[in-house]
């Protein structure tokens, strides 16, 4: 499983003072995301409503959720890494109690959230809490 240190990721993104810096940081972070195999990228695992293809797989063990995710777009893979760092290791109830949009905004990603009509980030968050 990818090592997802939420605080470290947050610090890196918060240090970005321009959209260009955020872009480059997300591209750099995207390389840490563990990719899914082609057999895991099924239609069933696909999140609907994303302009780039996004796949999300959920595992539950002893009440703890672990997610794997992938995309064909790098920027989205960077965002997914952030989302997984937030979501992994929590129970469903904890996830449902979390305000994931607010949490994500602390990563300096508000513009990626506002454009979610096309990129589908809100849909991913909804699926994580479902």
């Amino acid at each position: 499983m990818t090592d997802l240190n939420r605080d470290a990721i947050q610090a890196r993104l918060q240090a970005c003072t321009s959209k260009e810096a955020t872009f480059k940081e997300l591209v750099s972070l995207s390389k840490q995301l563990e990719r899914l195999s082609d057999t895991e990228k099924t239609e069933d695992n696909k999140v609907k409503g994303c302009e780039s293809a996004v796949w999300l797989i959920e595992h539950q063990e002893n009440g703890t959720c672990t997610f794997q995710a992938d995309s064909d777009a790098k920027l989205m893979r960077g965002v997914l890494l952030v989302i997984l760092s937030l979501a992994n290791g929590h129970s469903k109830a904890e996830l449902q109690a979390m305000d994931l949009v607010t949490e994500l905004s602390q990563f300096n990603l508000s513009s990626y959230l506002t454009s979610s009509r096309t990129n589908g980030v809100l849909g991913i968050l909804k699926q994580i809490q479902a």
Partner: peptide
């Protein structure tokens, strides 16, 4: 991906 080009 075109979304990445667009992002930059």
């Amino acid at each position: 991906h075109t979304m990445d080009l667009n992002g930059y």
